[in-house]
Design a protein around this nucleic acid. Structure first.
Length: 862
RNA sequence: GCCGGGGUGGCGAAACUGGCAGACGCAUCGGACUUAAAAUCCGAAGAUCUCAAAAGGAUCGUGUGGGUUCGAUUCCCACCCCCGGCACCA
């Protein structure tokens, strides 16, 4: 008998539209808290609405969508939301350039990009969509700011910033290119301004220690964060000023000056070799030294030379190490010898104590400095007591390990032991202490920009800085502003905004006109998704308790440091104000690789972007998704190829023809399961392959996220299905003109149905539209998520017979086929009996035969 | 300099616990179908050598050199190269 049905063509465009509409109509991806079901929070880093998403952007969303859809099928209550990181400079620049209001520009971009994501079939709970530029969102940035102010985690201080004299604005570090302004090319200056800071350093230790729990984060990211926090253990040691210096400095001032210079060192064990002290030009003592100098003006001028060269020069490259002798001296507290105090450009004011001890024998930088200025070099750590390098002839500092010499009572100690003992000794004598130093600095959040969250404080002439009361939030960004690109924050030029009344005294006050860094917005948005409509709080703690933490978070490595460390910081602050019990927001992190074209990152300016919509039009979203998932592991960067996409389309069309040809035969009710009917060898083999494939794909998707190998496993199953069908006479039609053979054997129908239905379900996270359509064609009207993820039977997946390779002296010389449950002795006997093996063993002495857990036989002959 | 990741066919890659290296796909080549082409289906394919040819066989092969092991892409030591982070950080 022949099926009258004619095979249809795979038409992704029609199918995709149909299912996207149905998902939206049926609210398929909207979820509520449900304590009865295990939750899964799947999140991709939200998007900056720059205009058009290219394939490089959307790869991330495809990866997350495979995970979300797979978890949904596995019975999890899956939260998979999306939103927009909608504040930021490009919107304001667009306004300056074309006169479009930043809000208009942003909202239009959001609308377009949302359409792109919907056409890709990403399964987002769109009803939870957020945009950080809306007052409903950013009022909670302000709320959080106030909470941090209360807890002294937000504070104001003067600090140095990058200032473009021509654009009249502050620049972020990233906007300074080789010491010049990225926009106009002027040389960037350093300015001291009042800025708001978040005290992230209060959590430095916790941010480091917390990494212990981040076992499912890439090592790379943890390393970057560790470097960023930059913990180093050492000691602070005081070098008292010499009596002459002390007297000189004191005589010029009336205040009781500190009598010592405190230095930070990680190598206190080398302190006997400390032959000078170097202060940063910014060190507080420098001012007093200058005042007391015989020619204060000349002294200040020498210092100013360094402070001027500071930032801009340092960014472009190495600055020649320079310094000068202040003429003052301090006392080395271990040798009790006077040491000269220098000021030099290589010592940083912001790190440690802003003062270092110079140990030229054991620090390369100090060594070069000492050679340049003829300062004494003393060797105090040596390979052994009899092998002490000669200080005069040394070519470089001996920075490594060794044993102490020339170090008084500490002579003979191994350096690390000496380090411990000398730290203790310093503490005992009251001249120092072991300490931990961080590289991490507090987070400066002030931006002299319009398109950001207004900082909710006012300045009152009588009361000073006064926070805006929480009840008065949000401080709304005024719509009318002028975008000239000049002057301070555009907000400062809007009198209606600036002029306010003081909440404390009711008098006249000025509003803060800086806005917050946009990284504030992204530091807690993942909590907002749990409760996006809340008008009383940033989120309901109960809801975050249900959904949090994010179980799977994916995004680009470019956020490995800032966004991810700020989010970890914010989570801890939310914890400390009682909003959550979480410390870590993201359990598992995947950093997806970029998409290159022509060997370069896709970007509009390079003109090498691939617009997903173009590909959707030609091949459909499913083929695009499948291609991007298949071509390489998600973490790896990929090089875009049109032919690769072509191949994925071919595979989907192949699946389509297979299912379409068979759906009349295997669709619908009343077909027994393969376990209930008798199977011949070929049918058993197909069934085995089916169960093996389910096992592989399941493992590749969860817990591993090896999407590429999951796809290849499905391809293998499809290849096997084609071969099976040709052998069992159930032809697969290759085009519309062919007719399809009808199968009658119950076993064949049963194994085909099992295989095809498993395949379609496993394919659905990758090619959701086609899978839904095929599932419907197979006679299931309720949607594929309801069908659940296919299960496999370990005993079915196990092979009945296995081929065991036999090595002789490490080379494969033969293969024997044995029953899967054959004993080691049986395998050994079969191997030695194999003629191909015997050809290499006869006449030789078999010394050893190893049967490696039933998978391989290794014979050693001599 | 310190820290992290990596180096496998023509190309993208796979090999999960030390066990047949190169699954799957792209490109290529061959066959079937077709008047022909496209599409489709089936098949070949790491390199070198050998055999008249085929079947087959041999040697080499996962950056380089060593080591451990019956057996190493996988573990150990040394080195080279690429990518990323931090860096006058004391």
């Amino acid at each position: 008998t022949y099926n009258e049905r004619i095979v249809s063509e795979y038409k992704p465009q029609t199918i995709e539209k149909k299912w996207q509409e149905r998902w939206q109509r049926e609210r398929s991806f909207e979820v509520d808290e449900d304590p009865a079901r295990p939750k899964f929070y799947c999140l991709e880093m939200f998007a900056y609405p720059s205009g058009h998403a290219h394939v490089g952007h959307v790869r991330n969303y495809m990866i997350g969508d495979v995970v979300a859809r797979m978890k949904r099928m596995r019975g999890f209550n899956v939260l998979h939301p999306f939103g927009w990181d909608a504040f930021g400079l490009p919107a304001e620049n667009a306004a300056i350039k074309n006169g479009t209001h930043p809000e208009t520009w942003t909202l239009e971009n959001i609308a377009h990009m949302k359409g792109q994501l919907q056409r890709l079939g990403i399964s987002y709970a769109w009803e939870r969509e957020i945009a950080t530029c809306l007052p409903e969102y950013y009022r909670w940035n302000q709320w959080m700011f106030l909470k941090m102010l209360e807890r002294d985690l937000a504070y104001r201080k003067r600090s140095n910033v990058n200032w473009c004299p021509s654009c009249q604005t502050v620049l972020a570090n990233e906007q300074v290119v080789n010491g010049t302004c990225w926009r106009c090319g002027s040389v960037v200056e350093t300015r001291e301004l009042e800025q708001w800071f978040f005290r992230i350093t209060a959590y430095a230790d916790e941010l480091l220690d917390g990494m212990e729990q981040l076992g499912e984060w890439p090592e790379k990211v943890l390393t970057m964060q560790r470097n960023w926090v930059g913990r180093s253990e050492g000691a602070r040691v005081s070098f008292p000023l010499s009596p002459e210096t002390s007297a000189a400095v004191k005589s010029s001032r009336t205040d009781a000056a500190s009598e010592a210079i405190e230095v930070f060192t990680t190598r206190i064990d080398t302190i006997y070799g400390a032959t000078f002290i170097v202060l940063a030009p910014e060190h507080p003592l420098v001012r007093r030294f200058a005042d007391a100098a015989s020619d204060p003006a000349a002294f200040r001028e020498k210092v100013a030379k360094f402070t001027a060269q500071d930032r801009a020069a340092r960014m472009t490259g190495d600055v020649e190490k320079e310094g000068f002798d202040t003429g003052y001296t301090a006392i080395n507290p271990f040798t009790h010898q006077p040491v000269p105090v220098w000021i030099a450009n290589f010592v940083l004011g912001e790190y440690g104590t802003g003062a270092v001890m110079g140990v030229p024998g054991h620090d390369q930088r100090d060594f070069e400095f000492a050679r340049k200025y003829a300062l004494p070099i003393v060797v105090v750590v040596a390979p052994s007591a009899s092998d002490v390098p000669d200080a005069q002839s040394m070519q470089e500092a001996h920075a490594g390990a060794g044993m102490l010499v020339n170090s008084g009572e500490f002579n003979g100690l191994e350096w690390q032991e000496a380090n411990r003992r000398m730290t203790a000794a310093a503490a005992e004598r009251g001249i120092g202490a072991g300490t931990i130093q961080y590289r991490l600095k507090d987070w400066g959040i002030s931006r002299q920009r319009y398109w950001g969250t207004p900082i909710p404080v006012v300045y009152c002439d009588t009361c000073g800085m006064v926070p805006v009361p929480a009840d008065d939030l949000p401080v709304v960004l005024p719509r009318t502003a002028e975008f000239s690109g000049r002057g301070n924050s555009p907000l400062a030029q809007i009198p209606e905004f600036v002029n306010a009344t003081c909440p404390d005294c009711g008098g006249a006050a000025r509003r803060e006109t800086d806005t917050m860094d946009t990284f504030v917005d992204s530091s807690w948005y993942f909590f907002r998704f749990c409760d996006p409509g809340n008008t009383n709080l940033p989120f309901d703690p109960e809801k975050v308790a249900y959904w949090g933490p994010v179980d799977f978070y994916s995004g680009g490595v470019e956020h490995a440091i800032l966004h991810l460390i700020y989010s970890r910081f914010f989570t801890r602050v939310f914890r400390d104000i009682g909003m959550t019990s979480l410390s870590e927001p993201f359990s598992r992190l995947l950093t997806q690789g970029m998409v290159l074209k022509g060997g370069q990152v896709m970007s509009k300016s390079k003109g090498n972007v691939v617009d997903p919509d173009d590909m959707i039009q030609k091949f459909g979203a499913d083929a695009l998704r499948l291609y991007v998932m298949f071509v390489a592991p998600p973490e790896k960067e990929i090089e875009w190829t049109d032919s690769g996409l072509d191949g994925s389309y071919r595979f989907l069309a192949r699946v389509w023809r297979l299912v379409d040809s068979l759906c009349q035969t295997i669709g619908g009710e009343g077909i027994p399961s393969p376990a209930e009917v008798e199977l011949n060898d070929a049918e058993r083999a197909l069934r085995r392959k089916t169960h093996q494939t389910i096992k592989r794909v399941t493992g590749d998707l969860d817990p591993r996220v090896h999407l590429n190998t999951a796809v290849s496993a499905m391809m293998e199953l499809v290849n096997e299905l084609y071969v099976f069908c040709s052998k069992s006479q159930c032809g697969i039609a290759s085009d519309e003109s062919e007719r399809v053979g009808m199968v009658e054997r119950a076993g064949t129908i049963a194994v085909l149905k099992e295989a095809v239905e498993a395949l379609v379900r496993m394919l659905s996270p990758f090619a959701p539209h086609m899978a839904e359509e095929l599932w419907e064609m197979l006679g299931h009207p309720d949607g594929i998520v309801a069908a659940g993820w296919p299960a496999f039977d370990e005993s079915v997946a196990r092979a009945e017979q296995i081929v065991v390779p036999v090595q002789v002296n490490g080379k494969v010389r033969g293969r024997v086929t044995v029953d899967a449950d054959a004993s080691e002795d049986d395998i050994r006997a079969a191997a030695l009996a194999d003629p191909a093996v015997q050809a290499h063993t006869t006449g030789k002495n078999v010394k050893k035969v190893v049967v490696a857990n039933g998978r391989l036989v290794s014979v050693v002959v001599a």
